[in-house]
Design a protein around this nucleic acid. Structure first.
Lengths: 190, 190
DNA sequence: AAGTTAAGTGAATAAATATTCATTTCCAAA
DNA sequence: TTTGGAAATGAATATTTATTCACTTAACTT
C-alpha cells in the first residue's frame, strides 16, 4: 500500500503560513492552500480533519518552533546579561527570518478558529523566561517591573520591528540589531 | 421624506470594530455587524457599498481618530522631552482605552479587503512625528537611530502592552504607566 | 504479477455568507 | 392630513468557499 508522505504535513503547514502572511487569515481559502502546496484540495483532508484543525496545528507548530529557537545557546551558568542578550537576539533573528510567524500568531490569536486550550498551552512555554526575569530582578540588574509588562514590551517591539524590516532589501544590518538591543537593554536595566 | 440618520454610520463602524476585536477579521460576518448595530442587514448597504467598502472606511476612520488623539496638547514651543512624553502618553492612553483599534489595524493591514492607496495615505499621517524625532536627534537628546526603527519600537511595545492590559481588571495603574514610560525613555534617550 | 490497501485527485455538493429587492415604515413638505 | 420619497427591513437569492466522495494511482505483500 501507499504510505503517507511524512513531509507533506510540513509542506501544507508552510504553504498555509505563507498565505496568511501575504493575504491574511481573512482571505485564507482551502483551495488556495492546496494550490500553494501543489496538491489537490481533497488531500488536505487526509492530513487534517478540517480547516479549524489545520489552523490549530499550525499555531501550535510555530509556537513550539519559535520556543525551540529561543532557547538556543542559553546557559544558566553564564551571567544574566549574556543570557538576556542571547535570548533577545534569538527572538529577533527568528522573528526577522520568519516574519510570517508573528503575523500568524497575531491573526490567529483572536479568530473563531483557535481553541482556547491551545492558547493556554502555548502560554506555559514562556515560564522559563519569566523565571529568568525574576533572576535578573534578584540580582538588581533589571527594573522591578511586572513580568507581563516587560514581556509585552519586549515581544511587542521585536515583533513589529521584524515585520517592518523583514523584506530582503530592508533587513536590519548587524549594526542596527546592536542599536536595537541597546535600546532594549537601556529600557529594562535597573 | 425620511432623512438619513447621521449617527448610524458611526454606529455601524463601532459595531464592526468591536466584532473584529472579539472575533477577528476572519470571523466577521455582515449579519453579525447588523445584529451588533441593531439594524437590518440591508441597512448596511445603504451606508456602505459593500463589505470591502465598509472595512476601508473603518480603517481610515480609526487611523484618523488615533492621529487626532496623538496630537493632543502637543506644543512645539515646549522642550522636546515634554512633547515626547505627552505624545507617548497620548498613544498609550488611546491604545489602552481603545484596544480594539490596534487589533483592527493589525488584522486589516494584511487582508484582501484593504486597498493599497488607503494604506499609503495613512502612512503620511506619521510625518509630523518623524520630524519631531529628527528634532530630538538634532538636540542630541535621543539616540541616532533610524526613524522607522524607533517608530516600530515605540508602537510595537505600546500596542502589545495595550492589548494585554486593556481588560478593566488588568488596566495599567498610573504607576505602571510611569514605569513603562521610564523604560521607553531610557530606550530612546542618548 | 496479481491483489490489497491507503494516498491522491478534483468535480460535485453542502454550507456559509454576501448582497439584493419587494415591501413596509417613517418623516417632512404641501 | 395627505402624500412623495428616502430609509429600513429581512426573506430570498447569488456567490463564495469548505467538505465530500467516487474514482484513480502508487507502493507494498504474497
Amino acid at each position: 500500500m501507499k504510505s503517507k508522505d511524512e513531509l507533506k504535513e510540513g509542506i501544507i503547514i508552510r504553504a498555509t503560513l505563507q498565505l496568511i502572511f501575504r493575504e491574511g487569515l481573512a482571505g485564507l481559502k482551502m483551495s488556495d492552500i492546496a494550490k500553494q502546496a501543489s496538491i489537490a484540495v481533497g488531500t488536505l483532508y487526509i492530513y487534517f480533519k478540517n480547516k479549524e484543525d489545520l489552523l490549530n496545528h499550525l499555531f501550535l507548530h510555530f509556537k513550539r518552533e519559535s520556543m525551540t529557537q529561543l532557547a538556543q545557546k542559553i546557559d544558566f551558568s553564564l551571567p544574566f546579561k549574556v543570557n538576556f542578550k542571547q535570548l533577545w537576539f534569538n527572538y529577533l533573528t527568528y522573528a526577522i527570518d520568519n516574519p510570517e510567524q508573528a503575523t500568524l500568531l497575531e491573526q490567529l490569536h483572536c479568530s473563531p478558529y483557535l481553541r482556547p486550550e491551545v492558547i493556554e498551552e502555548t502560554d506555559k512555554l514562556l515560564q522559563p523566561i519569566r523565571e529568568m526575569l525574576n533572576e535578573g530582578k534578584r540580582q538588581m540588574l533589571i527594573k522591578n517591573i511586572d513580568n507581563e509588562l516587560i514581556l509585552a514590551f519586549l515581544s511587542g517591539s521585536i515583533n513589529l520591528i521584524a515585520r517592518r524590516f523583514s523584506e530582503n532589501d530592508r533587513k536590519l544590518s548587524p549594526e542596527q540589531r546592536e542599536q536595537t538591543f541597546e535600546m532594549t537593554w537601556d529600557a529594562v536595566r535597573a
